[in-house]
Design a protein around this nucleic acid. Structure first.
Lengths: 198, 198
DNA sequence: GTTGTAAGTAAATAAACGTTTACTTATTTT
DNA sequence: AAAATAAGTAAACGTTTATTTACTTACAAC
């Protein structure tokens, strides 16, 4: 039996992410992808049932999982609240800054019905995608460090700000002056923490 | 000369927003839209050059402009910082809560290359889309009420949080317990303000 | 009331889409 | 080295897409 060419499999995935980042998810067609990855359309369908299956697996395996790992790197639930948030904050920024395709597809997942569904399902199946952060927040509420808001509210107060700053970081990389510097980022983080802490 | 049927024009726009909210922008085709609005495809092309032209005008005229007006209702640059932010915050929430299609299309504009471009251009042509808020922030920096961050950074610290809360508000309307209440919203706003103010 | 004309329709167009068919290739097993 | 078989290809499939063509309708102007 002829063995699978893993390079081709990888090419399909990386080229797909590249097209999404450069031309948008709305402009990714299976034929375009096959051509760009130098394979026959049929080759994609050996591994993936259909386009939906491909996109969902691409999103979860190539983006969400590495993203979660990067966000939680060197983070511990036992950390001091401010330190913990700062760690997550800078981890997230570092990862997204160096993975524009990942950032692009994450942005799409906020509106695309398909990717949104995939995200919700992943969140349910894996228990919680950001379970350690959930427990971190819960512990700090119990300890009285922070107010008793629902976890989803805390999520809303931390991540969207940061994602918007990443978006601005990319916008400004094509302009004379970058305003999203590491200093600004840390000050923003401190601002958010100051608001949240009792 | 036969006069234009304004009802049909309006039907096209409202049906389009409805499809985007319910089935997603990725599932809006000109033929589906024409059928749902009970007109011939050709009728859409009397007023709009092509699909892109239609979507951009829909976004700007039916969504962004009413959105800006609603956000700035009863807001004044001379307001106290906390009062001003609270006013904008609650205006935005009220508007989006009652205009799910508007919220849906605004979410799409964060990722869709087409709508994103439209938003940027509108922002440039109209001077600044949220010019009064820009001046409000600038005045408060000058007065020393808040830190000297770039306007885009302040924008990132206020609006994305709120949009995420609106997203969660809609998520929770289909569940037993709504967590995004007016009380929570006001407390979140206070939290954000507390962080930002010196 | 006839006429001019833009509004509007139904059906058709070509291009692009996701996916499949019919076939060839490369490798392991015998 | 021949057989077996999944990997892979090129070309084609039937649909759906955005847009247009050829035609009809409804009203203002005369």
């Amino acid at each position: 039996m002829r063995p699978k060419n893993l390079e081709k499999e990888q090419a399909i995935r990386t080229v797909a992410l590249d097209i999404i980042a450069k031309e948008g998810l709305e402009n990714l067609s299976m034929q375009k992808l096959a051509k760009a990855a130098n394979v026959s359309p049929r080759t994609i369908y050996i591994k993936y049932e259909n386009k939906e299956d491909f996109l969902v697996k691409l999103f979860i395996n190539e983006v969400l999982e590495p993203y979660e790992q990067a966000v939680l790197k060197d983070f511990s639930e036992q950390m001091d609240f401010a330190d913990g948030v700062k760690k997550i904050w800078m981890n997230t920024f570092q990862y997204l800054k160096n993975n524009r395709p990942a950032f692009a597809i994450i942005q799409y997942s906020k509106s695309s019905l398909l990717l949104n569904k995939a995200y919700q399902q992943q969140n349910i199946q894996q228990g919680q995608f950001f379970a350690p952060i959930h427990r971190f927040i819960a512990a700090n509420i119990k300890a009285g460090t922070i107010k008793n808001f629902h976890f989803d509210v805390y999520r809303a107060m931390i991540f969207p700000v940061l994602l918007e700053l990443v978006s601005e970081y990319f916008d400004y990389t094509e302009r004379p002056k970058q305003i999203i510097t590491e200093k600004v980022l840390l000050e923003c983080c401190a601002t958010v923490i100051k608001g949240i802490m009792k």
